[in-house]
Design a protein around this nucleic acid. Structure first.
Lengths: 214, 214
DNA sequence: ACCTGAACACCGTTCAAGT
DNA sequence: ACCTGAACACCGTTCAAGT
C-alpha cells in the first residue's frame, strides 16, 4: 500500500535528479510502480501534490534555532531557507508559485514575528521586516536556481568557471561596466553574495529599528 | 505570413488572460489560426519562445529614466520592474526560470552600473547593490503574482479584502503574532509594502556607501 | 523560407470496475 | 478505501511533403 510520504519522497527525488519538469503525476506513479491514477487516492490533483511537497520541505525550517539577537536570528532563518532551496533547486519554482503560508510556513513565520516583537519591533514593523527578508531570499534563490541545469554538476568551482565564461562573453565595448563587474561577480561564491545582500537589508532594518517608528 | 512579434504578442495576451499555463505552443498557434508546428519556423522550441517573451518584456525597461541621484534611480528601476511584473503576473514564472541576462537585461544592467559608478560605488559594490535590489524585486513580485488567480479581478480593494479573509482565517490561538500582524498586512496596499522593503535596502546601501569599502 | 498533415511519445484527469 | 484499465482531451516535437 502507498502512503502520502512515500509519494512525496519519490516526487522530491525526481525533482532533485531531473528537475522541475520531471515532477509529473505519471512520472511519480511510474517510479512507484503504480498506475498513474493511484495517486489520486492521496492528492486530489497535481497542484495539491506540488503544494504538499513545498509544505513537506518547509518542515525542515522548524528545526532552525532562533537566538534572541534579532539580526542573528534573521540570518539563521534566511540562511536556512536559502540552503533548503539550494539543496532542491528544482523545487524553487514550486515555492515561487506557491503556498509559503501552509502550516509549516505559518509556524516559522510566527516564531520569527514573536522574536522580532521581543526585540521591540511593532507588529507592523516586524511583519514588514520579515516580508522583506523573505522576498529577498526567495528572489535570490530563484535567480540561483535558474542558473543550474537540471542534472548538472553543481560544485562551486565548476559553477564559478561557468559563470566566468558566461560573463566574459559580454562584449566589453558595449557593456564596459557589466564586463568589469562581471569578472568579479563570477568569483563570488554565491553564499558570499547572499550574505552581502542580507547584511544590507539587516543594516537598513537596524537603522529604522533605532528610530521611533519601530 | 507570420512574424515573430505577432507570435510574442499573442503569447503575451494568452499569459495575461489565462495565466502561465496557457502559454503553450499549440495554444498560441491556435490563437493565430495556424498549425502548431508553424511556430518552429520562428522559435526552435517552447523554451526559446518563453525566453523571447521575457526579453520582449524587459525591453520596456529601456525607457526608464535614471536620474543621477542613485537612490532615486534604483527606486525608479526597481519600481518599473515591479510594475512590469505586476502588469503581467502570469509571466513572472518565466522571469524566475529565466534569462534576465539577454540583450535588454544587460542594457538596463549596464545603465544601472554606470550610474552607481558615477555615484562613487566600486564595480564590486555596484554589482552587489544591483543584485540585491534585483533579487528583492523579483522575489516580491513572485510572491505577489502567486497570490493572483489566473483570470481573477485584480483591483486593489478586492485583493485587500481577500487578503484580510485569508489572514483572519489564521487561528489567533496558535499564531498570535501572525494574526495580529496579518490584519495589518491585509490593508497594506502592496505598493506600500514594496517601497518599505526597498527603502530598507536603500538605507542599508547608503550606510555602506558612506564607509570606505564602497 | 514558410507552412501543413500526420504521427510519436508524452501529459492530467475521469470513469467504471475490481478487491 | 485503495488500486487498475481504458479512455478523453490535451501537450511538445519531428518528419515528410507541399508551396
Amino acid at each position: 500500500m502507498l502512503a502520502a510520504h512515500q509519494i512525496l519522497d519519490t516526487a522530491l527525488a525526481l525533482v532533485d535528479e531531473r528537475g522541475t519538469d520531471a515532477l509529473t503525476v505519471r512520472g511519480v506513479a511510474a517510479a512507484l510502480d503504480v498506475a498513474p491514477n493511484a495517486l489520486y487516492t492521496y492528492f486530489p490533483n497535481r497542484d495539491a501534490l506540488r503544494a504538499a511537497l513545498v509544505e513537506h520541505l518547509l518542515g525542515e525550517l522548524d528545526g532552525v534555532k532562533l537566538p534572541a539577537d534579532w539580526p542573528t536570528a534573521l540570518r539563521h532563518l534566511a540562511g536556512a531557507l536559502r540552503a533548503l532551496l539550494a539543496r532542491h533547486p528544482g523545487a524553487v519554482p514550486l515555492f515561487v508559485a506557491g503556498p509559503m503560508f501552509g502550516p509549516h510556513g505559518l509556524h516559522t513565520g510566527e516564531r520569527a514575528l514573536a522574536l522580532l516583537a521581543g526585540a521591540g519591533f511593532t507588529p507592523t514593523a516586524a511583519a514588514r521586516a520579515l516580508y522583506t527578508v523573505l522576498a529577498y531570499t526567495l528572489g535570490f534563490a530563484a535567480m540561483d536556481a535558474a542558473e543550474l541545469t537540471p542534472g548538472a554538476p553543481a560544485d562551486m568551482d565548476t559553477r564559478v568557471a561557468q559563470r566566468r565564461t558566461a560573463f566574459e562573453a559580454v562584449p566589453a565595448a558595449d557593456y564596459p561596466h557589466t564586463h568589469a563587474a562581471a569578472s568579479v561577480m563570477a568569483t563570488y561564491v554565491t553564499d558570499t553574495q547572499f550574505r552581502s545582500g542580507l547584511d544590507t537589508i539587516l543594516a537598513g532594518l537596524a537603522r529604522s529599528a533605532a528610530s521611533p517608528s519601530r
